[in-house]
Computed example of a mutant assay.
Amino acid sequence: MRAPRLLLVLPLVFAASCSDLSGLADDASSGAPAGSGTQVSDEFSDTAPFTVTVDPADLTAAIEALEVAAERDGGYDRSLFPHWKDDDGNGCDARDDVLVKQDRTGALSEADCDAAMTGEWVSMYDGETVTASGDIDIDHFVPLKEAWGSGAVDWTTEDRQVYANWQENNWHLIAVTASSNRSKSDQDPAEWMPEDEAVWCAYVWAWVEVKTEWRLSVDEAEKTALLDYTASAC
C-alpha cells in the first residue's frame, strides 16, 4: 500500500482571467507538511474510492483560505466543458477510465472500454454496491455548472476540458449510483449532502480539495455549510 499523501500540488495556476496549462503539476507531493494531521491516498475506503484522515483544524483553515464570491452562472452550457474525452490517448474515454480505475474487483482493463462492464463499484453518496456499469454515473465532484459559476467562466475551453476529464486523483471524478448523482445534480453542500452521513467529513474534504486545487471560489452560504459540516462531522 502506498504511503498516504497530503493534498496534491495545485494542478492549475491561473493568472487573471485565463489559465496556464504549463502550470499543471507533474508530480504529487509526498508526505504531509510539518504540523499537518490530514492524510489522503487513492486507496479505496469502505465507502469511497479514496481514503482520507481529516484534521478538522486543517480543513477549517483550507475553507477559510478559499475566496468568497457570488456565483456567476450566466452563460453556462455543459458543452463548454468538453467531457468524456480520451485525453491520455489510451483508447478509453474518461468515463470508462474511471469505471476501470474505481472497480473494486481489479479485473477490468482498457480492453473492456466501449462496452457494458461488469465489476463492483461502491457509491460514496448512498453506500450502494453496483455491479453493472449502466447503473453508474461518473460525477464531477464539484459539478461543471458549480465550477463555471465559481471561476471556470474565465477559463479557456481547453482548460475546461482538462477539468472535465481530470483523473490524477480519485476524488475529482467519482463513480456513484445514477440515482444519487441525479439527486445531487449541480448543488453545493449548502443545498445537498450525501444520504450516508458517515461520509460527510470526507465529502466536505474532497469538495474543498477540488475547489482549492482549481482555485475556485465559494459563495457565503456554501462556506457556512462547509464550516458547519466540518465542525459537526469531522
Results as ranks from 00 to 15, higher is better:
Ala65Tyr: 00
Gly134Lys: 08
Pro143Cys: 06
Glu168Trp: 14
Ala152Lys: 07
Gly89Met: 05
Ala3Ile: 10
Ser36Trp: 15
Asp103Ser: 05
Ala15Val: 11
Arg104Met: 10
Arg5Thr: 12
Glu67Ala: 14
Pro82Ile: 03
Asp137Cys: 09
Ser17Trp: 02
Ala69Trp: 07
Arg160Cys: 02
Cys201Ile: 01
Leu24Gly: 03
Ser30Val: 15
Asn169Val: 11
Ser180Phe: 08
Leu80Ile: 06
Ala116Trp: 13
Ser22Gly: 06
Ala32Gly: 10
Leu144Lys: 13
Val9Glu: 07
Ala147Phe: 07
Ala221Trp: 06
Asp20Ala: 03
Tyr76Leu: 11
Pro33Ile: 01
Leu59Gln: 07
Cys234Lys: 02
Val40Gly: 02
Ala178His: 13
Val98Lys: 04
Ala116Leu: 15
Ser180Glu: 12
Tyr229Gly: 03
Ala34Cys: 08
Glu195Asp: 15
Thr47Arg: 12
Trp84Gln: 10
Trp155Ile: 00
Arg182Leu: 15
Ala107Leu: 15
Asp55Pro: 14
Leu12Asp: 01
Val208Trp: 03
Trp155His: 05
Val68Ala: 05
Met193Thr: 14
Ala65Arg: 02
Gln187Trp: 03
Thr131Arg: 05
Leu216Trp: 00
Leu66Asp: 06
Asp93Gln: 04
Thr230Cys: 11
Ser150Ile: 05
Ala107Met: 11
Asp137Ser: 12
Ala132Cys: 06
Glu71Gln: 11
Asn90Cys: 12
Thr157Cys: 00
Lys184Ala: 04
Ala34Ile: 11
Cys113Leu: 07
Ala233Gly: 00
Trp171Lys: 03
Asp186Asn: 12
Leu227Asp: 08
Ser41His: 06
Asp26Ser: 12
Ala16Gly: 06
Glu209Leu: 12
Trp121Met: 07
Gln187Val: 02
Lys85His: 08
Asp58Arg: 00
Ala116Thr: 14
Gly106Ala: 09
Ser19Glu: 13
Arg95Glu: 12
Lys211Cys: 04
Thr38Pro: 08
Glu120Lys: 05
Met193Glu: 09
Leu12Ile: 13
Tyr229Lys: 13
Leu6Ser: 09
Glu158Ala: 14
Ala3Phe: 10
Leu7Arg: 02
Leu59Val: 01
Ser133Cys: 08
Ala57Thr: 14
Glu191Trp: 03
Ser232His: 00
Asp97Trp: 01
Glu220Pro: 09
Leu24Glu: 10
Ile63Glu: 07
Val54Ser: 04
Gly106Phe: 05
Val208Arg: 00
Asp139Val: 13
Lys85Thr: 13
Met193Leu: 15
Trp200Gly: 03
Trp155Leu: 07
Lys145Ser: 09
Ala175Asp: 13
Ser36Gly: 04
Ala25Pro: 08
Ala3Gly: 04
Ile136Leu: 14
Gly149Pro: 12
Asp154Ser: 15
Thr38Val: 03
Val9Thr: 12
Ala34Thr: 04
Asp58Ser: 01
Glu110Gly: 12
Val218Thr: 10
Tyr229His: 10
Thr118Gln: 14
Thr224Ala: 15
Gly89Glu: 08
Thr53Gly: 09
His140Phe: 08
Trp171Phe: 15
Thr157Gly: 03
Ala107Lys: 13
Asp20Met: 00
Val153Trp: 14
Val162Lys: 04
Asp27His: 10
